[in-house]
Computed example of a mutant assay.
Amino acid sequence: MELSMHHMRRKEIAKITQRRRQILVHSFMYHELHSPMASEEKYYGWCKELLMLQEKYPIESERLPYYEEFTYFTGATDFTIPYYKYPWIEQVALFLLGENS
C-alpha cells in the first residue's frame, strides 16, 4: 500500500511539470499562431488540474520548473504567462503544427 501511494504521489508531482509545459505551449499557439493546441474545455481542464496539484503539493511545486511563471496563475486567463522567455516553446508549437522543416 505504501509503495503505491508513493508512486501515485510521484506521478501527480510529475503531472505539475507536464501541465505547466502544455499550458505554455498552448498559450503560445493560441496567442501567436492563432491555432490552439487543445479545445477550450480540455485547456481549462488542464488549468484546473494544475491548480489543484500545485495546491496539494505546494513545497514540491516550488521546486519544479516554471514555478515562477505560474506563481500567480489562476487559470482564468493566460495573458500573464511569459511563453516568450523560452525558445523551445515555439519549436514545439511548430513541430505540433507539422512545420518542422
Rank of each mutant, 00 (worst) to 15 (best):
M1I: 01
M1F: 01
L3S: 08
L3G: 05
L3V: 10
L3I: 12
S4A: 11
S4R: 14
M5I: 04
H6D: 13
H6V: 13
H7P: 00
M8Q: 07
R9F: 02
R9M: 04
I13A: 09
I13G: 09
I13N: 08
A14L: 11
K15I: 04
K15M: 13
K15G: 10
K15R: 15
I16M: 09
I16S: 11
T17S: 11
Q18I: 09
R20V: 05
R21M: 11
Q22S: 14
Q22H: 11
Q22W: 13
I23Q: 03
L24T: 14
V25K: 10
V25E: 11
V25N: 09
H26M: 04
H26I: 04
H26T: 05
H26N: 12
F28T: 05
Y30V: 03
Y30Q: 10
H31T: 08
E32M: 07
L33D: 04
L33R: 07
H34T: 03
H34E: 03
H34V: 03
P36K: 10
A38R: 07
A38N: 06
A38P: 06
S39M: 02
E40R: 04
E40A: 03
E40T: 02
E41G: 01
E41I: 02
E41W: 00
Y43V: 08
Y44Q: 03
Y44D: 02
Y44N: 03
G45L: 00
G45H: 05
W46N: 04
C47Q: 07
C47K: 04
K48Q: 07
E49P: 00
E49W: 00
E49L: 01
L50I: 01
L51K: 13
L53G: 00
L53F: 01
Q54W: 08
E55N: 14
K56P: 02
K56N: 02
K56I: 00
Y57W: 10
Y57A: 02
Y57V: 02
P58M: 08
P58A: 06
P58G: 09
P58H: 14
P58I: 02
I59H: 01
E60Q: 13
E60W: 12
S61T: 14
S61F: 12
S61W: 15
P65A: 07
P65S: 06
Y66D: 09
Y67T: 13
Y67C: 10
E68C: 02
E69L: 10
F70R: 12
T71L: 15
F73S: 15
T74A: 00
G75R: 03
G75Y: 05
G75C: 04
A76R: 09
D78E: 11
F79N: 08
F79M: 04
T80K: 14
T80G: 14
I81F: 11
P82S: 07
Y83H: 14
Y83Q: 13
K85G: 03
K85D: 12
K85T: 12
Y86P: 15
P87S: 12
P87H: 11
W88H: 12
E90G: 02
Q91R: 15
Q91P: 07
V92E: 15
A93G: 07
A93P: 05
A93W: 07
L94R: 04
F95N: 15
L96W: 14
L96Y: 15
G98I: 09
G98K: 10
G98D: 12
G98T: 12
E99P: 00
E99S: 00
N100R: 07
N100K: 08
